[in-house]
Design a protein around this nucleic acid. Structure first.
Lengths: 235, 235
DNA sequence: AATAGGATATGAAAAAAATCACAAAGGCAA
DNA sequence: TTGCCTTTGTGATTTTTTTCATATCCTATT
């Protein structure tokens, strides 16, 4: 019954799994990964060395079974009788999420939101380096915000040719979102983080993450009206 | 074409429905409602009078069955052979989501993010009126941002006693989040929209919506790394 | 070195969510 | 008004996700 040749570590999953077909990770799990990573990070900073699924369950308001099942989807990071090593698990989750990649980003739109993002630790903590802001307002072009230069958005296309940029952050008004998005895509970015309220998608080879703060606000008012969601556990 | 008056609306569900138990709306559906509302709003502004689930399906990248099933959960807003009346559906969804309630909000934290929210149309479009900003920085206290006065956060408790405030928006640094959250709760707000990276919850009688932009960024980098999520359809 | 106790990994079961498929309702045209 | 055509509403079905239950493996103790 023992692990005859179970190479588990590197890649293969359990014994009876079909080896064909790429095993896609359910979106439901992916959405939980950043939250795990965040909590693990806090535990790490607090100096916690190890944690059991039961303890993490109490902390996060998620069932222990789900925690184990989730981690297991990626090969199992724990050890029977011990639990999970916080540092190891945190770093493994970080790898999965790509924070070890050191992506370079530009922020298009130097309004309040763009500035807020540029000056936060949002990016650096996650392996993303914001290298430039772009705007069309002459009164801000040439400034430096949080050490990041503000350039003329008209120069964005050529900028993207000369610099390798992985991520474009869109904090422009709705109307210009589509245009800038296309420019970024043509410029070769791999992903776009879109805060404009227009929903972008369907661009070949570019991953787009649409953020809709308004939707989040409506979820709040819905919950307030119905009294539901009092737990607040979830995003 | 306007035979929408069909009284069906009020409450009753289909003919053969068990009347057992209060039917709680699955979280999965609730999370989709704001997006439906958003798309319907755009159709409305574009002057579209009616739409079928099939058409909306194409537009939103969601199956038509799901659309029908979702709307049906709330009693069915459509009509066979006709589809959905855009204006009617939009307003019904709005009601469900609480945009007709005219909530009053305060924003605590007048940094870039607080300012960005205060000056956006985020709130007004959703029936929420931001009435004041609060901060502890003397250089901004007394100013007016987007027509909203910035007050001293030390006066927040008494302010909440004299004014009826429904929603508190937290755009303060992580460390002060918990304190301000408690102050807001004691002051009687019904909901808290939390942008601080610390996760708040478990306050009796207060609904909390935690926004974690960092999690969203990690979802993007995950997708970039794995090539998954190229559709970009979902938030 | 042997054993007790603890906690993961994991297949099986249950629950939840999405999809299907079609009867029935109602629009629309002649 | 009739009858065809469109499209919803909805029970049944399938798929996905979560939870359960326990064998297995590891730590810790004596």
């Amino acid at each position: 019954m023992e692990s005859i040749d179970k190479v588990k570590g590197t890649f293969g999953r359990g014994p009876a799994s079909r080896m064909q077909k790429e095993d896609e990770v359910p979106l439901a799990i992916i959405r939980r990964l950043p939250r795990y990573h965040r909590f693990l990070g806090e535990l790490l900073r607090a100096g916690t060395l190890r944690i059991s699924s039961a303890e993490l369950s109490r902390l996060m308001g998620v069932t222990a079974s789900q925690i184990r099942a989730d981690f297991n989807r990626f090969g199992g990071f724990g050890q029977q009788g011990y639990g999970y090593n916080v540092k190891y698990l945190h770093s493994k989750l970080g790898e999965l999420l790509g924070i070890t990649e050191d992506y370079r980003a530009v922020i298009v739109g130097a309004g309040n939101l763009g500035r807020a993002l540029a000056t936060s630790h949002m990016f650096k903590r996650r392996g993303v380096t914001p290298v430039a802001l772009f705007d069309n307002d002459n009164s801000v072009i040439g400034q430096s915000i949080g050490g990041i230069p503000v350039l003329d958005v008209a120069t964005l296309p050529e900028y993207l040719k000369s610099e390798k940029i992985d991520i474009g952050v869109l904090t422009v008004p709705k109307d210009s979102a589509r245009d800038v998005c296309d420019t970024l895509a043509r410029g070769g970015v791999l992903g776009i983080w879109n805060f404009a309220s227009s929903e972008l998608d369907g661009i070949q080879g570019v991953v787009i993450e649409n953020v809709h703060l308004g939707d989040s606000l409506l979820q709040l008012t819905y919950a307030m009206r119905t009294g539901a969601g009092g737990d607040g556990a979830d995003e």
